[in-house]
């Protein structure tokens, strides 16, 4: 079976995020959304299509792969599997 695994890599919550901060300040707030929007974080989004027997296995494969191949660096990054979907 094929599964779609969506992952998000972003800077750790307490790390600085210069890109998000700049987008917030220079585009969002300057564009008139100062009262409504208080934070923007930027990150990377990767979507894997993976062969597995069940969704937990798909999740495990991608989690291991991302650790092993240094798709993210836990020293600075937060890694989230945001969605697993059967194709």
């Amino acid at each position: 079976m094929k599964f779609l695994v969506e992952t998000i890599i972003e800077n750790l919550p307490l790390a600085r995020n210069p890109e998000g901060e700049t987008i917030l300040r220079e585009l969002v707030h300057r564009g008139g959304y100062k009262d409504l929007v208080s934070d923007v974080r930027s990150g990377k989004y990767l979507r894997f299509t993976v062969e597995a027997d069940h969704s937990n296995e798909a999740k495990e494969i991608i989690f291991d792969l991302c650790n092993k191949l240094r798709i993210f660096n836990p020293i600075v990054h937060k890694f989230t599997i945001s969605k697993v979907e059967k194709l």
Binding site: P18, E19, T22, I23, E26, L27, R30, G31, S42
Partner: peptide, 14 residues
């Protein structure tokens, strides 16, 4: 300009 954040040139263009 603005660190090329989001997309090169987009913040300056705004």
């Amino acid at each position: 300009s603005w660190g090329d954040y989001l997309r090169a040139g987009v913040i300056a263009a705004n």
